[in-house]
Design a protein around this nucleic acid. Sequence first.
RNA 1: GGAGAGAUGUCCGAGUGGUCGAAGGAGACGGACUCGAAAUCCGUUGUACCGCUUGCGGUACCGAGGGUUCGAAUCCCUCUCUCUCCGCCA
Length: 452
Amino acid sequence: MRYDAAQRRVEFWRLRPCIIPTVREEMIDLRELKERKEEILANITARNMKIDLDHIIELQEQRSLLLQKSEALRSSRNENAAKMKGKLDQATRTALIEEGKALKEEIARVEARLKEVEEEYLRLGRTIPNYAHPDAPLGTDESDYTILRHVGAPPAFSFKPKDHVELGEALDLIDFDTATRVSGPKFYYLKREAVILQMALERYALDITLKKGFTPFITPDIAREEILTGIGFNPRGEESNIYTIEGMDACLVGTAEITLGGYYSGQILDKSELPIKMSGLSHCFRREAGASGQYSKGLYRVHQFSKLELFIYCLPQDSERYHAQLLAIEEEIFSGLGLAYRVVDTCTGDLGAPAYRKFDIEAWMPGRGDGGEYGEVTSTSNCTDYQARALSIRYKDDDGKNQFVHMLNGTAIALSRAIVAILENYQNEDGSITIPPALVPYTGFDTIKARG
RNA sequence: GGAGAGAUGUCCGAGUGGUCGAAGGAGACGGACUCGAAAUCCGUUGUACCGCUUGCGGUACCGAGGGUUCGAAUCCCUCUCUCUCCGCCA
């Protein structure tokens, strides 16, 4: 029998609703739907989303009634079956069998309806986004963010700085044209010193995370769809940024957040293990359909890059503290490279559905726009219990009750964008590139010399 | 890829279609004995959901899904995973 991905996906939802799945779809706690209704509605508005909450509540009530009915019927069925354990005269036996048959049909009828209602209820329920942090700036688009601080000053050039595409070509460090011929647009070859530079950056950032007590990982570049959806990615559909693999029910990961966040899916962690801090290196694959224009030229927006990702599992009361720690590590990595950057508190409309709060670091890129602009290089999100609920990742609290952990992620370094920033900020008038001092121990050279 | 074996609670492990949420053991926890410990003895020990709510009742879960049956851990089908052997391979 052919059992392809699409079919499995359908079956996941068609067949699972009546049982407790190991991996659920992401969502807020739907039991709070009614008591926190106003808050949820306000949050949906703040995030510029449109969701018919009343319809979901109506479905929830229908589901509850059908569930109770189904359980009552099953109870009768069990009772009826139990009566037939001993020896019975033929007439009684026949009567009981008849009753059992009738119950069986009734159960099938009620549960078919339940399945229908439940499927719709969960499908809509999981579109509800996570709650937002009260301090996250309200707003519906990117420009509504709050800039928390600027660190460092953009370099002053005595000449007109080039962008990284020009620099990369002139120094024979990056080859876009051949990559387009071999792989397609938005792919690239790194060559020569750029290869060493990437590996140096990788190790530089990794070493900082090691010092902070993060356990290093190299993760798989492929993950199952249920993990993707649990983390909050949409593997399919027009707007999806994810490559799916034909016939496999799996996708190329867009970030190690997926594989690190999936690491403990379905597990109950020991409270004493928390916090768990991981730093994972993976390739990142993104379809970037329709993304073009000057802001996505060169290495800035590509189909494949490498990234060191930070991930933390912790107790709910600690997540804000660790979110601040993730941001501090990202800042340490970028300020250590001597790059000017600013820190942005992302507005509600620009938070991903799983994120409770998100901070971005934008580094100064002299080749961006007209005369330089800040461009996003990292992002860190506190997803509270949203992903944990979807992936069923819990810990036992002091009363022995299972509680959902909080999950946070952050970019330690996205290597392609870091290379953009370094090439553009550290270029010299003669076309050479100075290596930031912090990287020299890792590269073994302090300059990429101009080629002539 | 080929051949075979298996999947049961925290772990090991039994289980003839009804008396099985599941024997037995280990572990863990509580208690007794002890100055203390070991040994011994007694008791407790899964998860999720639903309903009345300090407790109790119900439903579901024996790898997953489907089927047969009045009734399935047990019978049938499909799938997944694990182990052993062979082949291939960085």
